[in-house]
Nucleic acid binder design. Structure first.
Length: 740
RNA sequence: GACCGAUUAGCUCAGCUGGUAGAGCGCUACAUUGACAUUGUAGAGGUCACAAGUUCAAGUCUUGUAUCGGUCACCA
């Protein structure tokens, strides 16, 4: 038996691919190379000076949070797009950042301070408390940043942004002042959504409607009152100033305009009967008790009928402020008390079960209490002059509203949304959009640059003087998030980055924040820059468990990405989140699925090992004489490259990943490698050499097409490839192969 | 209540601009430990929710029905 010559194979291939041995050092190698930064790529000739640009801003994760599968999916999608475009030779920029998550962070620190020092934020005072928050944020920042890196995210860390850093502060202040000067921001007293738990106002979009079992009470204010009314909230009736009926309702027409005074549950009340077309004669008794201070609809009815809009009978702690037996009771207790009183007085006609929609605060879960408050708003319907416009169909200097800008930007295709059906969702939302309440009663955030003295108000970034007092409210975090595509690029300065990379190419985010964020970014960018913020919106689905359930700690079905990276590698984790994840569709994820892709990483590893040992003795200076089959293999290869390329270009990553996977495993490995064994061991040297050439081509190209999807294993192998096979030492910046 | 989506193999889903169905996992049988803490080969399994329509031809287009899911919504 002749001893087969032991090929010269790199030692690392002697054992299966083990991600943990390579991932951290590879990431460091990439980072040290500087090629996450497009400037460095241009400098070293990887991208041409005038190459097309490709830019994405990372939707900033909460600075104090930890990485979950949703983040992991987002990072995987974006990194694939970024790596692909970088290999295409574009000037590719992916900007990292973190978000202050104002309310969440503040309450975290509040809890911490209360636990460790037994103090409230008010004990510490605003300034001292904010110092604690800053320290906390600084400490926890490293955690999330490191976790982002674990996924292999090729972000340009030299451009890292934090929503509350100095540069972003400047952008937010400038934005506010500009909008105020255009009278798009105003201050007004009206009903707001008050979250008693969070002790702040919230916007309409931060409300979650919950269906709950409630009761509908039908009663009279007193024995003499001629009209019976129904309500689910009897405790608010001490704040009634009117009873509204439909003007066409024959039963009540004779009372319209009359005023009745009486004492209701110890509280003197005066109500006027008014006509309002919004009242449905068919519902309940056809008469509505109007409580302007605690219901938005009632406030509007009061406005239309010229009724007084107060008294306010419930305070910020959801407690009654009236005198008598209800004094200082919580609303639920007050309700029981009022019902008891109605029964005693014989005023209660009936109680029915009903399903009522309760408004709760998204972040705290508290029941929202509508209260009248003096707050800051953005007017979405006011006409103003857009000085500069690059938006298709809107001339510079034309009169528009913010709503029109938001609609136009998508309607004209300047911003395209994937999947397409979300365009309709977007338009639908804008049509029903009301003015946006942007002030919040929390401390951690951008403090509104309004200054007060003796009833006078000035809006400007710098304090007008020591005796002027600054507005204590801060801005809704989505206000600053809305500026994110351009505040991260240096706006309000006209930086090179801003000129080069804005509008950004893609915004990739979850469909659940299309209103919160996507719409607000379009609003802010079109207004401040006259540009859309991004040319494409790619909406990914939510990561769910294998049964399609939402992952949650209480159910215990959470799959931790860091744990998965540890177990199966970042490449496997990425692929599991991409394959089968059509944009806009939820992704079912299981540990088995991730394990399957770890096997694939190992398969790639072994394919490479086989090919490398098979081509070890090849001399690449010869010209290969390809057989018909050789050419066929190369054609298949290029066809696969083309398909993967097209899929990535049209954001169908789930298809591209699957095709790349399928080709490598079931075409290259199962067919090409198997049939090559005879040729490689045969005596026909010309045929053997030709096949070696083909295998080399297949390996190099496959590593490249796989790289965006599974950067670590492909780069690890690349580093072991003989120099003469590579067009660059680092696969991350090698040239994307050409398909046909 | 309005709008949107889904309904295709046991499970999870692909099927873009219409031409009599595909993948992965699972299952069955056989082979394999000299690229592969395995892998390969072969196989079973679907009246593409239902009904009507357009068409030479329909998972694929139109309309309607049913079931499930989602988003939005001020009915007191």
């Amino acid at each position: 038996m002749e001893e087969k010559q032991q090929p010269n194979i790199p030692e690392i291939f002697l054992s299966p691919y083990n991600p943990v041995n390579h991932e951290n050092s590879l990431y460091k190698m990439w980072e040290d190379s500087g090629y996450f930064n497009p400037d460095k790529c241009v400098e070293d000739g990887i991208a041409d000076r005038d190459a097309e640009t490709f830019s994405i801003v990372l939707p900033p994760p909460n600075v104090t949070g930890i990485l979950h599968m949703g983040h992991a999916a987002m990072l995987a999608v974006e990194d694939i797009l970024v790596r692909y475009n970088r290999m295409q030779g574009k000037r590719t920029l992916w900007i990292p950042g973190t978000d202050s998550a104002a309310i969440a962070t503040q309450s975290k620190v509040e809890k911490l301070v209360s636990k460790e020092e037994k103090k409230s934020r008010h004990d510490l005072g605003r300034e001292e408390f904010l110092k604690r928050v800053d320290v906390f944020v600084e400490d926890s920042k490293a955690t999330i940043v490191n976790q982002i890196k674990k996924m292999g995210s090729s972000l340009d860390w030299s451009r890292y942004a934090f929503t509350l850093d100095d540069q972003r502060y400047k952008a937010v202040m400038t934005a506010f002042v500009n909008m105020y000067n255009d009278q798009l921001i105003y201050r007004a007293d009206r009903i707001v959504n008050w979250d008693p738990k969070g002790q702040t106002t919230i916007s309409d979009d931060e409300i979650v409607h919950e269906e709950r079992q409630g009761k509908l009470y039908t009663f009279k204010y007193n024995k003499e009152f001629p009209i019976t009314i129904a309500t689910t909230r009897p405790e608010t009736k001490v704040g009634d100033t009117a009873v509204a009926v439909n003007p066409d309702d024959k039963r009540y027409q004779k009372y319209i305009g009359q005023t009745f005074d009486f004492v209701f549950c110890d509280v003197p009340v005066s109500v006027t009967v008014v006509a309002d077309t919004e009242v449905d004669p068919e519902f309940g008794t056809g008469a509505v008790g109007v409580t302007p201070a605690h219901s938005k609809i009632d406030w509007d009815i009061a406005d239309r009928s010229n009724i007084i809009r107060r008294p306010q009978v419930i305070n910020e702690y959801a407690k009654m402020t009236v005198a008598g037996r209800l004094n200082n009771l919580k609303v639920e207790a007050a309700r029981a008390e009022v019902v008891k009183w109605l029964e005693e007085e014989g005023l209660l006609e009936k109680i029915e079960d009903t399903i009522q929609n309760i408004a709760t605060a998204e972040r705290t879960g508290g029941i929202v209490e509508p209260l009248p408050k003096l707050q800051w708003w953005i007017d979405v319907n006011k006409k103003f002059t857009l000085k500069h416009s690059e938006i298709t169909g809107i001339e510079s200097g034309s009169e528009v509203t913010l709503k029109e800008l938001m609609i136009k930007a998508v309607e004209n295709g300047d911003t395209d949304i994937f999947p397409e059906r979300f365009k309709r969702v977007y338009f639908n939302w804008i049509e029903n959009l009301n003015d946006w309440c942007i002030s919040r009663q929390i401390w951690y955030g951008h403090r509104i640059p309004a200054w007060y003295k003796d009833g006078e108000t000035k809006v400007q970034i710098q304090s007008p003087g020591a005796d002027w007092e600054q507005e204590s409210d801060t801005l809704d975090t989505w206000f600053s998030s809305g500026l994110w595509t351009f505040s991260t690029l240096g706006w309000p300065e006209q930086t090179d980055d801003l000129k080069t990379y804005h509008p950004t190419t893609v915004l990739e985010t979850g469909y659940d924040i299309i209103f919160f964020w996507v719409a607000r970014m379009i609003l802010m960018s079109t207004y401040h820059l006259g540009q859309v913020p991004f040319k494409n919106v790619y909406l990914h689905g939510l990561v769910r468990d294998e049964k399609g359930k939402k992952m949650s700690k209480s159910i215990g079905n959470v799959i931790d990405p860091l744990n998965m990276i540890e177990k199966f590698g970042a490449d496997a984790t990425r692929l599991s989140l991409i394959v089968g994840a059509a944009p806009g569709n939820d992704v079912p994820l299981s540990e088995d699925k991730i394990r399957a892709y770890k096997k694939f990483a190992n398969k790639v590893w072994n394919i490479s090992r086989f090919i490398l040992t098979s081509i070890d003795d090849a001399d690449w200076r010869q010209t290969p004489e390809l057989t018909k089959r050789d050419n066929e293999i190369l054609t298949d290869l290029r066809k696969n490259i083309l398909e993967v390329t097209e899929d990535i270009e049209r954001f169908s990553l789930y298809l591209g990943a699957e095709k790349a996977y399928h080709y490598v495993w079931h075409e290259l490995a199962d067919k090409v490698l198997e049939e090559s064994k005879d040729i490689l061991n045969g005596d026909n040297m010309s045929e053997k050499y030709a096949r070696q050439y083909v295998l080399k081509e297949c390996l190099v190209a496959s590593l490249k097409t796989l790289h965006p999807f599974m950067p670590f294993v492909t780069e690890t192998i690349w580093q072991e490839l003989p120099k003469e096979l590579k067009d660059h030492d680092i696969l991350m910046v090698a040239k994307w192969p050409i398909g046909e």
